[in-house]
């Protein structure tokens, strides 16, 4: 594995690289995650973004919240646009000018943008792809995505007589990314900013394609108190429902251990309206048990305990 050096970084200003005045909802986890990623990466980057909340709340013309060069094109092509940026820098002899970071939400990454992302990973571009995972299509009004968790209520996976919400398990994107044989895959959570910083810096020190997925609570879609954004995110990790780990060259090399005894998933579920239906009937207990089993499997699979 080789590393490349950037041109001398500009003096870091005290202001963040994601400027205030953006129109993210109160307590938005994605705005926080993007701020942390940019803070860790520094100014010598070029970022792309898929259509979605982040793009909408930061780029309402004539304003922009981005203090770094930014391009948004479409929903499904953030990874392909980033590929174009990266090869252009190379072709123009400007590869030391900037590192390239592609961004997308969970829908733009794991669903509609999966093909373009796969192409980017397989071609070996020197790009860090960051997926801000808020577990549904929030920008269009909280519809189910491939990263929506099991039994979660969204506007297209409502609970009802015949439904407990989303019938399917969350797609295992980190493994899909890792299966491309890329050098670095990581998951993270807005609850742990230092971890995000370390992972972004580490990823950017590695040449080649990197994939990072950051759990980013959405108070609007999760029907959680905006004040509890960090609490909710922490509980997702502590229950084992959102394992935080690093994979290097296909192998899990580092995990964030959970505190023992393990926190039951109820603690995480009960503070979010998107799971409220599970607490309304005795049968819901069985569903919660299924979710506990998902957490337990994660704890075992990644050795979180």
């Amino acid at each position: 594995m080789t590393t490349t050096t950037l041109a001398a970084p500009k003096e870091q200003s005290c202001q963040t690289l994601l400027a205030s005045g953006h129109t993210a909802c109160t307590g938005c986890g994605e705005a926080l995650a993007a701020k942390l990623v940019l803070g860790a990466a520094g100014p010598n980057i070029i970022v792309t973004d898929a259509t979605g909340c982040l793009e909408v709340f930061t780029t309402r013309f004539p304003q922009s919240s981005w203090e770094v060069p930014f391009i948004h094109s479409l929903f499904e092509n953030s990874a392909a646009v980033a590929s174009g940026v990266e090869v252009a820098l190379k072709a123009l002899g400007r590869q030391n000018e900037a590192k390239v970071i592609a961004q997308g939400g969970d829908g733009g990454t794991a669903d509609i943008g999966l093909q373009a992302l796969s192409g980017m990973l397989e071609r070996g571009h020197d790009i860090l792809y960051v997926c801000y995972d808020n577990e549904a299509y929030m920008n269009t009004g909280v519809q189910r995505s491939g990263l929506t968790p099991f039994d979660c209520m969204t506007t297209t996976s409502p609970c009802g007589e015949l439904s407990w919400g989303n019938k399917h398990n969350k797609k295992d994107m980190p493994s899909i990314a890792a299966a491309h044989g890329i050098p670095y895959v990581a998951t993270a959570s807005v609850a742990f900013p230092k971890d995000i910083e370390n992972k972004v810096k580490k990823a950017l020190s590695i040449t080649g394609p990197k994939y990072m997925q950051i759990h980013s609570p959405c108070p609007l879609g999760w029907r959680s108190n905006p004040q509890l954004t960090i609490k909710v995110a922490k509980l997702a990790v502590q229950t084992g429902l959102y394992p935080v780990f690093e994979m290097e060259n296909g192998k899990v090399t580092k995990v964030r251990k959970i505190t023992t005894p393990k926190t039951p998933v109820e603690e995480y579920l009960k503070i979010q309206g998107r799971f409220a239906h599970l607490f309304k009937s005795p049968k819901g207990k069985e569903e919660i048990q299924k979710i506990q089993e998902i957490a337990d499997r994660n704890i075992e699979k990644y050795g979180l305990a």
């Binding site: 400027a19 005045g21 953006h22 129109t23 004539p62 304003q63 922009s64 919240s65």
Partner: peptide
């Protein structure tokens, strides 16, 4: 429709 960096600072969201 190219925008300048950091110009959202003109949008004072404190009113929310």
């Amino acid at each position: 429709a190219i925008a300048k960096a950091g110009t959202s600072k003109a949008n004072q969201t404190g009113g929310w």
